[in-house]
Write a protein that binds this DNA or RNA. Structure first.
Lengths: 233, 233
DNA sequence: GTCTATAGAAGGATAGAC
DNA sequence: GTCTATCCTTCTATAGAC
């Protein structure tokens, strides 16, 4: 047999996708092996237990936060406030592609495993911290437009809160609306924070800080999906 | 044997607690039976499948939202804004009692099961809708102090978003701080909404609408847990 | 590193007596 | 309605050849 050098990665990738769409406990090792086209001998050669495979998946998410989630947005958008909403827009697009299935992989695993799998809980917390730090960079970059007593850490944490809470409801309702609403309310909050920003010499929105090729990044609250249809399927 | 008349309820209650602390897939029928002191014959007499038991648990949560969550707060607090933060405070207390374990039972089940168990997903959505409607009542009661274009439904949905996102992070970090932060930021948002409220003839906070016996309901943002210790265990 | 085969426990669910 | 006994599947993990 030609020995494949990517077996470990294929197993991690298959596990990652299955954990995301079905959850950890509901995904059997046999199912992962089938999806990865591998045999149990290979899996247990790389990972002592299923939980170690889970930790590798969580490590993958940690490593891929910037290349997969942050960079694509921060490369297109320069204005710090719009970078934040650009990241939210990225999740919105994911919800659209998946018809609101799956949601946030870290959030899913957090609620399923935090109480029963201590090592996984720590990795999940690390993932949240990484995300919050990425957003915090943008909050800090916008500090000159925000109220003087703004705590960048708290505001970044709140943005994570809104993202996770919005994704959860979108998944529960199988509808984009609750997520759109959450983002629109967060935008309203930011508008009020910016209106209260005391440093009027700092650059404002629309002064060229926001590139022209990223208009789709701005979620317009007034055009949020409000067609009145029932949120159920 | 003395036939017990509460067997069904004991099974539902045991399942409810175990699903809350371990998740649905991770909880075995045998474990439920042991906790409920019942035998499989009884369980399958009342419930055709484990999933039907899950639906009964979700029905229980629906029935108990007002008596267990809303009424205890609304009975103590009359000011509509403080009622909202009183409900948040109730969850804060639960997090304290459980040392940030468990979190929101509905949120947990939402992320674990929404994609794979359609009937459960619908019940979960119904639970969210019930919660949102309860909060919406208070938002509507405060409309005369909020900006004219406030959408009570959206704001109530956003409050649910903040609650769920905050609980998730508290569970992931095993620390109250992210929840406190979320509530403090939501309070800040409300303060800004109220400051923008145009109807200055409407009753304001501190005019007696808020009862004196409920001072503990107000989460003071400036006293939020900020001891700087690492959020891990 | 990967294969086949399988151990050994736990999973959900059923049958039939009482 | 509740009991015991058990069926059959699936689970995680291991053993040992290659």
């Amino acid at each position: 047999m030609t020995p494949r050098t990517d077996t470990r990665e294929r197993i991690v990738e298959a596990a990652r996708q299955l954990f995301h769409s079905q959850g950890y406990a509901a995904t059997g090792v046999a199912q992962i092996l089938k999806a990865a086209d591998a045999k149990s001998g290979s899996l247990y050669y790389f990972f002592p237990t299923k939980e170690d495979l889970l930790l590798a998946v969580l490590e993958w998410y940690k490593q891929n936060l910037w290349p997969q989630v942050i960079d694509p947005v921060y490369d297109r958008v320069t204005d710090p406030i719009e970078r934040i909403f650009g990241v939210m827009h990225g999740y919105r697009q994911m919800l659209t592609y998946t018809e609101c299935r799956q949601g946030c992989p870290i959030g899913n695993l957090a609620l399923e495993l935090a109480d029963t799998h201590p090592a996984a809980r720590q990795m999940i917390a690390d993932n949240f911290t990484g995300w919050r730090n990425a957003i915090k960079l943008s909050v800090e970059a916008a500090m000159d437009r925000l109220p003087e007593d703004t705590d960048a850490e708290s505001l970044a944490s709140f943005i994570l809160t809104v993202m996770e809470g919005g994704m959860m409801q979108a998944k529960a309702y199988k509808h984009l609306e609750p997520f759109e609403t959450a983002v629109a309310q967060l935008r309203d909050y930011f508008d009020r924070l910016l209106a209260d920003g005391t440093n009027w010499n700092a650059p404002q929105r629309g002064d060229g800080a926001e590139p022209l090729d990223a208009p789709q990044v701005h979620d317009n609250p007034s055009t949020a999906d409000r067609d009145g249809r029932d949120r159920a399927d």
